Amino acid sequence: MTFGEQPAYLRVAGDLRKKIVDGSLPPHTRLPSQARIREQYGVSDTVALEARKVLMAEGLVEGRSGSGTYVRERPVPRRIARSGYRPPGGATPFRQEQADAAVRGTWESRSERAEAGAGIAERLGIAQGDPVMCTHYVYRDSCDVLMLSTSWEPLALTGRTPVMLPEEGPLGGMGVVERMAAIDLVVDNVTEEVGARPGLAEELVALGGVPGHVVIDIRRTYFASGRAVETADVIVPADRYRLAYHLPVR
Rank of each mutant, 00 (worst) to 15 (best):
G42Q: 13
T158L: 08
A228G: 02
Q34N: 07
V190P: 09
V210R: 11
R52F: 12
S65M: 14
T161Y: 11
R227K: 13
P32H: 12
G59K: 07
T221E: 02
K53I: 15
E50S: 09
D45R: 13
A206R: 13
R219M: 13
V43Y: 01
A121V: 09
A201V: 13
A99K: 00
V21G: 06
R74F: 11
I80Y: 00
T191I: 11
V176A: 06
P32N: 11
M147S: 08
V12S: 06
A238H: 09
A224D: 04
E73W: 08
V249Y: 10
S33Y: 12
Y222A: 12
I80K: 01
A238C: 09
G68R: 03
W107I: 00
E122P: 06
G119A: 13
R11F: 11
S109G: 13
V132Y: 01
R79G: 08
G212T: 06
R123A: 13
V47E: 05
G4E: 05
T158D: 03
G63R: 07
G4T: 06
P7W: 10
E193G: 10
L60W: 10
G105E: 00
P75V: 01
R30S: 11
D130C: 06
T135E: 01
M147K: 08
R79I: 08
L60Y: 12
E153R: 14
D15S: 08
M133A: 12
R36V: 12
L155N: 04
A182W: 10
G68C: 07
R242N: 04
A206F: 07
E108M: 14
Q34M: 10
A232C: 15
A13L: 10
A196E: 14
I20M: 01
R82M: 11
A181P: 01
Y137C: 04
C134E: 15
E202D: 13
G59M: 04
E193P: 07
L16S: 05
A101Y: 04
A91F: 08
T29V: 13
R38Q: 14
E115F: 03
P7Q: 10
C143I: 12
P162E: 11
K19H: 07
D233A: 15
A196D: 09
D141H: 10
T161P: 09
Q96S: 13
R179Y: 09
R86E: 02
A156Y: 13
A238I: 08
E5S: 15
R79C: 02
D217W: 14
L155V: 02
G199R: 07
G119D: 14
G89K: 03
K19D: 06
Y245E: 14
P75T: 03
A81I: 08
I37R: 05
A127D: 15
V21S: 07
R74E: 05
T69V: 15
G59P: 04
G208P: 06
G105L: 05
S33A: 13
P198M: 12
D184V: 12
K19I: 06
V132L: 00
L55Q: 00
E167A: 10
L155F: 06
I20W: 02
G199P: 03
M180V: 02
D15E: 12
G209L: 05
A81W: 02
Y70L: 01
